[in-house]
């Protein structure tokens, strides 16, 4: 029977209380959000924290979706299901609805949180790629205040983030750039999994801003294929200012693949993952571009 080892358990009454508890228990304390990554790891005893600080009660402070300051702000405790159901999200970021539809399964999505997903920092995590494509940022709070970290600097390695012991991820911010200089925006997420509900073998998210027939800007996020910071920066650079043509997108796919360092595992060998990096980048870009051109299609 796989069951967790012993630990101390504390319910946080507020964010500041959570930070206090984290400080009290030190290095070996962990935040408990939905628990859908942490508890399976604890059952298999791959994680053995000494204390858990349960933040599920902090819905007032951490569970919200709102637009403010030209950004979509997502509280860390928002669940996958809420992100999927939110019209506000769909209105601005079709990519997130695409991604949420293929993350885990409906029951897991009911309880798994966005903050937990990012902090778990699994190299195959889907939202990390989506947020990288959208060039979002994360708000990390400690007892001395909070800082804003660009999505692409959030992860420091597999299963590692900039969130230090004693800190909390509180919010994800996604810049809403529609309408800027007449640029039209579209985004999309594509994932290949061995089966519904499985983690990606490879996945790509794309956000594109069109100015006439030119690509004004693009964001490309990649999951599970060994992309630095979950992103394909060289491909984005190439696209900036490039003609909005299939050829450009194909070249971007090639560049994305070239800069990946895929690790073979049971989901697939390295050459296949590299191939997916290219193939899925192109597919995500194609859909994103189509959506940019036909804005109604951006709202699934």
């Amino acid at each position: 029977m796989q069951v967790p080892a012993h630990f101390e358990y504390e319910k946080a009454a507020s964010v500041s209380h959570a930070l206090l508890l984290l400080a009290r228990y030190g290095q070996d304390a962990r935040i408990l959000a939905g628990g859908h990554s942490l508890i399976p790891m604890m059952k298999l005893r791959l994680a053995q924290p000494e204390a858990l600080v349960d933040i599920n009660g902090l819905t007032d402070e951490l569970r919200y979706l709102r637009v403010s300051g030209g950004e979509l702000r997502i509280g860390a405790l928002v669940t996958h299901a809420q992100l999927l159901e939110s019209e506000l999200v769909g209105q601005h970021f079709a990519i997130l609805h695409d991604a949420e539809q293929v993350i885990a399964d409906p029951i897991v999505r009911n309880w798994g949180t966005i903050g937990g997903s990012l902090c778990q920092a699994d190299p195959s995590e889907d939202l990390s790629a989506a947020f990288a494509a959208l060039k979002g940022s994360m708000v990390v709070q400690g007892r001395d205040g909070s800082r804003v970290v660009p999505a692409r600097e959030f992860h420091t390695g597999p299963y590692e983030t900039v969130v230090a012991p004693g800190e909390l991820l509180t919010e994800i911010r996604l810049p809403i750039r529609t309408g800027a200089a007449g640029a039209r925006h579209g985004s999309a997420y594509v994932k290949v999994a061995r089966r519904v509900g499985d983690w990606p073998v490879g996945a790509a998210g794309a956000a594109i801003w069109l100015s006439g027939d030119t690509i004004a800007d693009a964001g490309i996020g990649l999951a599970a294929v060994g992309a630095r910071n979950f992103a394909a920066a060289p491909a984005e650079e190439f696209l900036r200012g490039a003609p909005a043509s299939t050829q450009s997108l194909r070249r971007a796919g090639q560049l994305a693949a070239e800069h990946c360092q895929p690790v073979p595992d049971q989901r697939g060998p390295a050459d296949y993952k590299r191939h997916l990096a290219s193939e899925l980048t192109v597919r995500a870009l194609v859909t994103a571009m189509r959506r940019a051109r036909t804005p109604a299609a951006g709202r699934p």
Binding site: H36, I39, P40, L52, D54, N56, W111
Partner: peptide
């Protein structure tokens, strides 16, 4: 052991959950 099968699904505060993946404390 890995929250994949759903044999354990119950409702928690009116929302289905895999009850092998939540603590009683929660």
């Amino acid at each position: 052991d890995t929250s994949n099968c759903g044999a354990c699904v119950v409702w928690l505060d009116d929302v289905p959950v895999k009850s092998c993946t939540v603590l009683t404390a929660m």
